[in-house]
């Protein structure tokens, strides 16, 4: 059904293109979605390591207050280009619950590379209570869990605008042009210049949003680079084999009269 969805969406996008001549925006699920070129899109795409590290910093300093990263362990950060010592140091900055100890109590200890990122809240109810009833979803799979995930998240993060006059936005809600229904509980997370990056990294809102989306694309599909590399080898082999097995078939069939 996604194929059909995309087919129809593609058709409507083509129609829109003919009518308006605008390529930048395509209709998404209820909101305005900005289409961007990502380092990781396409069969030859790779994650931009520097962007991943910046995105990780954005996650740590901005998102991690509310959003968990349940399926990512510190050891996975090796994919971002960190070495073992750096990973150990990052892990040790987090407190992880362990236990029970000999007295039967749970206790906190510094994280080790094998630990997963601790969730900011003990459970969903605690998360809801701290966020006015809204549940900040786990981000590990977010890019895969939304249609057109990377573009959608980027559009969401950069889509905070003043609400149109006609719209009455209640307290605790915010206007967002990308969000379905345009009203979202999460306040604008990235404003630009929120954090200081090593070197002279671009700290504009757009750049930081792109970095964190790149990071989340990696958390969704950490196997992506291996997958595409393996895929290119497999395709090369299979394409050659298409010709060879076709040749073999033709030779075997060459003595058959039509």
């Amino acid at each position: 059904m996604r194929k059909l969805n995309i087919l129809t969406r593609g058709l409507s996008a083509v129609a829109g293109l003919i009518l308006s001549g605008s390529v930048a925006f395509a209709a998404g699920a209820g909101g305005k979605i900005v289409e961007r070129d990502w380092s990781f899109s396409g069969p030859f795409g790779n994650f931009d390591k520097a962007s991943l590290q910046r995105g990780f910093q954005v996650y740590r300093e901005v998102c991690s207050g509310c959003h968990g990263l349940d399926f990512i362990a510190f050891r996975n950060l090796a994919d971002l280009g960190y070495n073992e010592a750096e990973i150990k140091a990052i892990a040790a900055e987090y407190e992880v619950e362990d236990g029970p100890n000999d007295e039967g109590e749970m206790f906190m200890r510094p994280g080790i590379p094998a630990d997963r990122f601790p969730n900011p809240f003990a459970n969903e109810n605690a998360a809801r209570a701290a966020n006015g009833g809204a549940y900040p979803p786990d981000l590990s799979l977010m890019v895969k869990a939304r249609p057109n995930g990377a573009n959608y998240l980027y559009s969401l993060l950069t889509g905070y605008e003043d609400a149109p006059e006609s719209m009455d936005v209640p307290d605790g809600m915010h206007y967002n042009s990308a969000y379905s229904g345009n009203m979202i509980a999460m306040g604008q997370p990235i404003w630009g210049d929120d954090i200081s990056l090593a070197g002279d990294g671009d700290t504009s809102m757009e750049a930081l949003a792109a970095d964190v989306v790149t990071f989340l694309a990696w958390t969704s599909e950490p196997e992506m680079e291996t997958r595409k590399r393996t895929g290119i080898a497999a395709m090369a082999f299979l394409l050659v084999m298409c010709f060879v097995s076709y040749g073999s078939m033709r030779y075997i069939w060459s003595d058959v009269k039509k």
């Binding site: 060879v244 097995s245 073999s248 075997i252 060459s254």
Partner: peptide, 14 residues
């Protein structure tokens, strides 16, 4: 000879 070669090549790839 050619026929054998292409058949062997195909089977080898398999």
């Amino acid at each position: 000879g050619r026929r054998d070669f292409i058949v062997v090549a195909s089977n080898t790839m398999m």
